[in-house]
Simulated assay, not measured.
Amino acid sequence: MSTAPVTPWYKQFWPWLLLGLLFTSITASSTLAVLAIRSADGMVQEDYYEHGRAINMILAKQQRAAELELAGDLRIDDQTGDITLDLAGDDRPERLILKLLFPTRDDRDQSFTLEHVRDGRYVGQAEERLAYRWYLQLQPDHDTPEWRLNGEATFPLDDTASLAPGGAG
């Protein structure tokens, strides 16, 4: 028979290790639960029905542009900021709206009004030099435009950027 003294449980290593693991997992899971509840899920859209209808309207505008056989070639002079657009097709309104949409930050988006000068040529002016990649949207300056052209460009432009129904944007 052994006469070694038996130490109480709270003076041994293993119970404290197991309790430490248990309390660590409780603390970590509680922290993650609080973060999940308090932070908003930005990927979920509450107005998904309206968003879907807006997509259908955009597709209808692009279809209308295809029916009118619209296409455009855009040039922006890097030095002067002169915007020149040559629009081909059956609809040539007096004024167009050109939107430059930055892919990652909507606070950098820009909008320009282009005036019709002759034979499908439109001109406008950019206040500052453009750089980086942008999505392009072109539509008539009406309350409810019936068509829209899309494109994509990286500035400064070496040549022209093409605008067509569908595409980017």
Rank of each mutant, 00 (worst) to 15 (best):
R105N: 15
D41G: 06
E50W: 09
F155C: 02
R121S: 08
R64K: 12
I37C: 08
E46K: 13
T24H: 09
L130C: 06
K61A: 11
E46D: 08
V117T: 15
R75L: 07
L87S: 01
R75V: 06
T104H: 12
Q125W: 05
T160K: 13
A60M: 09
I55V: 14
I97E: 11
A88N: 14
A161Q: 05
T80W: 01
T144Q: 14
D73E: 12
D141N: 09
Y135F: 15
M43R: 13
N56Q: 14
I37G: 10
Q110W: 00
T104D: 13
R105L: 14
P103C: 09
K99P: 00
L59N: 15
T104Q: 13
N150A: 05
D109Y: 03
L136P: 00
A40Y: 11
D91A: 15
A71W: 07
D73G: 06
V34L: 15
F102H: 14
E67A: 07
T80N: 06
S30H: 10
R38H: 14
R53N: 12
A33D: 07
R129V: 10
D77T: 05
E69N: 10
Q79C: 04
D159V: 05
N56T: 06
T80L: 02
I97A: 10
L70K: 00
L96A: 03
E128C: 03
A164G: 05
S25H: 12
D86Y: 09
Q79P: 00
G81A: 04
T80F: 02
T113M: 08
L70V: 02
D91P: 01
F155G: 01
L32I: 11
M43H: 13
Y49G: 08
D73R: 09
L96S: 01
G120R: 03
G124W: 05
R133C: 04
F155Q: 01
A54R: 12
F155D: 01
S29F: 04
S30I: 08
T31F: 13
G52M: 08
I76L: 08
V123P: 00
L138R: 00
L157S: 01
G124E: 05
R105D: 15
T24S: 15
G89D: 06
I55A: 14
P156A: 09
E46Y: 07
L32H: 07
L149H: 03
Y48R: 11
Q139L: 12
N150R: 03
R75W: 04
Q63R: 14
N56S: 13
L98R: 02
G89A: 07
I76A: 06
I55M: 14
H116Q: 13
E50M: 12
L74T: 02
R108P: 01
E69K: 10
L130H: 04
A54K: 09
